[in-house]
């Protein structure tokens, strides 16, 4: 296909991506270097009879509005936002490292900084949910592959539901069920014989709930891909393995799993990307008191009750993007090498 025709065909798509994905990234980068204006403060002297004169500082709402309108970006702050307490918190980290009471103390104090709190949960979620969901998906695929064909359709139908459902809605449904008045929460209370037990009350339980939700939501994808992969396992290889004397487990270990490996890489890549932006479950489970994620922090800044903290959100966004690039880099490097070898 000649260049001209190629670009004519791809132009709408490319334009959309450049305008609404590439440009926003630039916009985020620029915004992250600015912070919102301080309120314009005026000193007003009020003189009352008998009381003498007092000077009072007041927010000049009109002037503030005007300034914000004139320079919507805010004032230039350089990398200040990146380093402040709500982001990388270099000063605080320095202080903690300089004066602490052992490793546990460092960890717990760093964990109290908002950015590291969000990062800790995001990474935990990404790297716990992805492998466990894949493992569960693989087991389901093996199980479904063995049941009579007649039941496969309905089983696949129900298996797809947790994945296809709107994440926020799925999270809400599980949240309601696991609340103390819901069926899961109530059952847990009676099982453990602890009437005050609430998944929301402790950080650990909240994390566990979110991770379980993540596995529930992500397993079907692995299941479907692995199940399709199982249908294409080369029959000849399987049968020659049988003749060579491999038992059931060895056949899975030496024939099926190697055959599914490329699929597993693909599933892992997609799920890492998706889990790294974990966001809706935190809203759905109202878990922000105990668990926040990078995406949620950005959302929270943007939704600010008083001001929308564009600068702060942008800085977190940039750090998130760096995270995504680091996450993707092994894949990108590998593909690049393979491409050059061709």
């Amino acid at each position: 296909m000649p260049h001209k025709a190629f670009f004519a065909f791809i132009m709408p798509s490319l334009l959309a991506m450049l305008l609404f994905i590439a440009l926003p990234i630039v916009s985020v980068a620029v915004q992250s270097l600015y912070v919102q204006h301080e309120r314009v403060v005026t000193e007003v002297e009020t003189c009352a009879p008998f009381a003498g004169c007092t000077t009072e500082t007041r927010v000049d709402a009109e002037a503030t509005e005007k300034l914000r309108h004139a320079e919507p970006l805010g004032r230039f702050n350089g990398f200040g936002t990146y380093l402040d307490r709500n982001h990388l918190a270099t000063a605080e980290i320095g202080a903690i490292l300089a004066d602490n009471a052992g490793f546990a103390d460092i960890a717990s104090r760093i964990y109290n900084l908002p950015f590291y709190r969000a990062l800790a949960f995001t990474l935990t979620y990404t790297f716990v949910v992805t492998p466990l969901a894949m493992l569960l998906g693989f087991c389901i695929a093996l199980g479904v592959n063995a049941i009579p064909p007649f039941y496969k359709g309905p089983v696949i139908f129900f298996s797809l539901l947790p994945m296809i459902v709107t994440p926020l809605v799925g999270a809400l449904i599980l949240y309601w069920m696991s609340s103390p008045q819901g069926i899961l929460g109530a059952t847990l209370q009676s099982l453990l014989n602890d009437p005050t037990l609430s998944l929301k009350s402790s950080a650990v339980l909240t994390w566990v709930t979110l991770l379980v939700y993540g596995i529930w939501h992500n397993a079907p994808f692995s299941f479907v891909v692995f199940y399709a992969g199982l249908q294409t396992v080369p029959h000849d290889t399987l049968e020659s393995a049988m003749i060579d004397g491999a038992n059931r487990w060895e056949r899975i270990r030496f024939v099926v799993i190697p055959h599914l490996m490329p699929l597993a890489t693909f599933v892992a890549l997609v799920q890492l990307m998706d889990n790294f932006r974990v966001f809706e479950p935190i809203v759905g489970f109202s878990a922000e008191a105990n668990a926040t994620s990078l995406s949620w922090s950005i959302f929270n800044d943007l939704r600010g009750q008083v001001d929308q903290l564009f600068g702060s959100a942008a800085a977190t966004s940039m750090l998130t993007i760096v995270g995504v690039v680091i996450l993707l880099s092994p894949v990108l490097v590998r593909t690049w090498r393979e491409f050059n070898r061709r």
Partner: peptide
């Protein structure tokens, strides 16, 4: 075409909320 597909892959990985924070002000 290869590079465009790779670029698309990187774009695919961008968390939507980071893009949203780029849109709002403009």
């Amino acid at each position: 075409t290869f590079w465009l597909l790779m670029l698309a892959l990187v774009f695919r990985a961008m968390p939507h909320i980071t893009l949203v924070s780029g849109y709002l002000l403009p």
